[in-house]
Amino acid sequence: MGTVKSVLADDVQQVTGSALQGALVDLIDLSLTGKQAHWNVTGRTFKQVHEHLDELIAETRESSDSVAERAVMIGLNPDGRVETVARSTSLPALEPGYLPEDKVIAAITQQLAAVIGRMRVRIAETEPDPVTQDLLIGITAGLEKQHWMFSVQQ
């Protein structure tokens, strides 16, 4: 099997690849955190929060696939293996067991804010590759919408 040759200059490819890999880890971990919360949320607004978490999970999974495919397009191999995500993530883990809705909403809001902050840095870093930058801008817009929708529930 051959390898994909990037159309980007080597230095741009490396910076862009690093940004994509970081985004991939954040998105995978955010989707896993969302799923953990989805299974364990409790409270009066359980159904609403449970279904909203489903939306977040679907969005982050789709976005992680787009990020990974973009990495391959520029000639790099994405690494979404569990050990890589566990080693590389900077998102705090949720507490084990059942979680009251207010704790879930607060935790997801905080995690979204952290990921959005890192995505904005990646957007700036990928200026030399406007295609990747555009992808990251679109993903960040979706995350910001999710952040807004979770934060108003607090």
Rank of each mutant, 00 (worst) to 15 (best):
G34P: 06
L53I: 01
V131P: 07
P100L: 04
V131R: 12
D10V: 15
K5Q: 15
W148T: 10
P92V: 01
M119F: 15
K35P: 05
I28D: 06
L136Q: 09
S66F: 06
V4K: 14
R61I: 00
Q111D: 15
T42E: 15
H52G: 03
L53E: 00
Q110C: 02
P100V: 03
A23K: 07
E51F: 13
D129T: 09
D129R: 06
S18N: 12
V41P: 07
P78T: 12
G34V: 03
H147S: 03
P128G: 05
G22H: 03
L32H: 13
W148Y: 11
M1E: 02
I116W: 00
A124K: 07
G142K: 15
L136Y: 11
S66Q: 15
Q153V: 00
R87L: 08
E101T: 05
T42K: 11
Q36R: 06
L91S: 12
Q133Y: 04
S6W: 07
D65C: 07
R81P: 02
A9H: 08
Q48W: 01
T126Q: 08
N40D: 03
H50W: 11
L99F: 05
G142I: 01
Q146A: 13
G43H: 08
Q146E: 06
L76Y: 04
I139M: 10
T89D: 00
V12F: 10
V49T: 10
T84D: 07
Q111F: 00
S90G: 08
E55W: 05
R87G: 06
W148H: 14
L8W: 11
E62D: 14
N40W: 02
Q111L: 00
D10R: 10
R87T: 10
E125K: 12
G22Q: 07
L8F: 13
I105F: 03
G80K: 08
G142F: 03
L32M: 12
L91G: 09
K103P: 07
H52A: 09
G17V: 02
G17K: 01
V152Y: 09
V72I: 15
D65W: 07
D11P: 04
D54Q: 10
E83F: 10
L20H: 08
G138F: 05
Q48R: 13
A58T: 13
E83Y: 12
V4R: 11
V82E: 09
Y98N: 13
D11W: 07
M1H: 09
Q110V: 04
W39V: 04
L53W: 01
A68T: 08
L53A: 01
T60H: 09
N77E: 05
I116G: 02
M119P: 04
Q133V: 05
S63E: 04
